[in-house]
């Protein structure tokens, strides 16, 4: 791939400051990629702690109270709606990510706003569900894992939402032309590329959260 960040023409030698800036620009772009994958690792281990608790308590069934007597499951409808909202949000974002790659910033901004809206709706609905559960948190093993897991999950969704919001805010200051053709200055190029690397890192995390939402929906509502 031809490197777009060094502006010096053939035969010209870039200045030292330019070279350093280009080097660390490339490092930062790569670090966003690495960081997103690493964040998925860390998140997997914290969610994994809950999945482990789920399977452990379910198989141990202490005092016969994995579900307990007089057990009421959480509302299947609410749970499914929340899960579908999260999936829809990730789907929308996946779609509009292709738009911005094609240079259409405004389409992404609209789609990003919808992504954020759907995500927040899921979080809000989840909070409502937690506040009106038909069981006490400690009434069984299931109820513990359920009430313990979702606050953690929605916190990570909210954190990712803040990230998306900051991307939306930053995109306002990048001219749409910069996404279509190479901007004239280094600073502009770096700005666009870093925005894009951050965006694709976000997209990875957001899709991952949707996947987790689906997996835990299967655990809590289906199996």
């Amino acid at each position: 791939m031809a490197d777009p960040t060094i502006q010096a023409g053939p035969g010209e030698v870039p200045s030292i400051a330019e070279e350093d800036a280009a080097f660390y620009h490339q490092s930062a772009v790569n670090a966003a990629w690495t960081g997103a994958r690493l964040a998925l690792g860390a998140l997997t281990f914290i969610f994994g702690a809950f999945a482990f608790s789920y399977f452990y308590l379910r198989s141990v069934d202490s005092s016969g109270r994995w579900e307990g007597s007089g057990y009421h499951p959480p509302s299947m409808v609410t749970g499914t709606v929340i899960m579908l909202l999260v999936l829809a949000s990730a789907g929308v974002h996946y779609g509009v990510l292709q738009r911005i790659k094609a240079g259409r910033k405004r389409a992404w901004q609209r789609g990003g706003a919808i992504t954020l809206g759907l995500g927040l709706a899921a979080v809000g609905l989840q909070i409502t569900q937690l506040a009106t559960l038909p069981f006490a948190p400690g009434s069984s093993g299931y109820s513990s894992v359920f009430t313990g897991f979702y606050p953690v999950f929605l916190t990570s969704q909210l954190a990712a939402g803040v990230w998306l919001e900051s991307l939306l805010a930053r995109s306002r200051f990048i001219p749409e032309m910069s996404f279509v053709e190479q901007p004239p200055t280094h600073a502009e190029v770096y700005r666009v590329q870093r925005f894009q690397s951050s965006l694709s890192a976000f997209s990875t995390v957001w899709s991952y959260l949707a996947l987790m939402s689906l997996l835990f929906w299967l655990l809590f509502y289906v199996f």
């Binding site: 281990f45 914290i46 702690a49 809950f50 608790s53 452990y56 308590l57 141990v60 069934d61 202490s62 005092s63 109270r65 994995w66 579900e67 307990g68 006490a136 948190p137 400690g138 009434s139 069984s140 093993g141 299931y142 109820s143 513990s144 894992v145 009430t147 313990g148 953690v152």
Partner: peptide, 25 residues
């Protein structure tokens, strides 16, 4: 972090992750 969080919810929201009598372990 997960274990500390669970222990704190056991102590505050009254979940029962680690209480054997209530389905925890």
């Amino acid at each position: 972090l997960g274990a500390c969080y669970m222990a704190l919810t056991d102590r505050t929201f009254q979940t029962a992750f680690f209480t054997n009598q209530l389905g925890g372990s």
